[in-house]
């Protein structure tokens, strides 16, 4: 079939599997950055100081409406111009983490805003502090509707990691490119990369759906 070479396939598989580990590391690391930065971006839009809200809002819009690829290049190449030499990994994780932080901040915001005013008022009525209201009342209710979004972005960040190959992060795509260039054969490495992505993201998407349903049930929010 299309000159598919099994020998070659077996010989490159170990390198690709090792690179899969790096892809997962990039996705996981980027996601951690996004989870934390996203929360900061979401809460910054809920302060009483209006100018901050507006600036952060526009910043989130800016990050969300420009290509991640361009952001990766920007962070990697502009760093040295201002005396900040970033390794490919640092630049890559920063870029992808910041990009997804913008998306996650919207998920957090949507979750928090989905809680009715009545819950705030009820918490106020039993004299709860704002922090305690967030922690005990709002976040537990805001979480379940956010989980689908958070999970989907975890899968999304995983699928966007190949863009880090352009600045030399040695993940799957980068490794496939290297293998291809060394052997002048692209059929097997590229096809295998596609299959590896499918093999991970399909079960992951399924798990996200299961996890969302389970969380809803556990919190008694299921219909």
């Amino acid at each position: 079939m299309f000159d598919w070479q099994w020998d070659f396939t077996w010989s490159i598989l170990p390198r690709l599997i090792e690179a899969t580990g790096k892809t997962l590391l990039a996705a996981g690391g980027g996601y951690l950055v996004a989870l934390v930065l996203g929360l900061i971006l979401a809460l910054a839009q809920r302060t009483p100081w209006k100018p901050l809200t507006l600036v952060v809002r526009e910043l989130v819009e800016f990050i969300r409406s420009t290509p991640l690829l361009l952001q990766v290049f920007f962070i990697y190449y502009v760093g040295p111009q201002i005396g900040l030499r970033l390794s490919p990994w640092t630049a890559g994780l920063t870029a992808i983490g910041l990009h997804y932080a913008a998306y996650l901040s919207e998920v957090y915001r949507g979750g928090i805003e989905s809680i009715g005013k009545g819950q705030w008022e009820a918490a106020r009525a039993i004299n709860m502090s704002t922090a305690a209201t967030y922690r005990r009342i709002i976040i537990p209710q805001a979480l379940p509707p956010s989980i689908a979004g958070m999970g989907n972005y975890l899968v999304g960040i995983f699928k966007d990691t190949p863009m880090l190959s352009v600045i030399g992060v040695g993940e799957l795509m980068h490794t496939a490119n290297t293998i291809g260039a060394e052997n002048y054969r692209y059929l097997e490495p590229y096809t295998l990369v596609g299959l590896i992505f499918l093999a991970i993201s399909l079960p992951a998407a399924w798990l996200v759906r299961r996890f969302e349903a389970a969380t809803r049930r556990r919190l008694g929010l299921s219909k």
Binding site: M173, Y186, Y190
Partner: peptide
């Protein structure tokens, strides 16, 4: 739907541009 949602745009792009000609 599952193939295109399950893989990355960049992987798809390389595959269609570099591998499809081999077929």
């Amino acid at each position: 739907i599952e193939i295109f949602r399950g893989t990355s745009l960049l992987v798809q792009l390389y595959w269609i541009y570099f591998v499809l000609p081999l077929m």
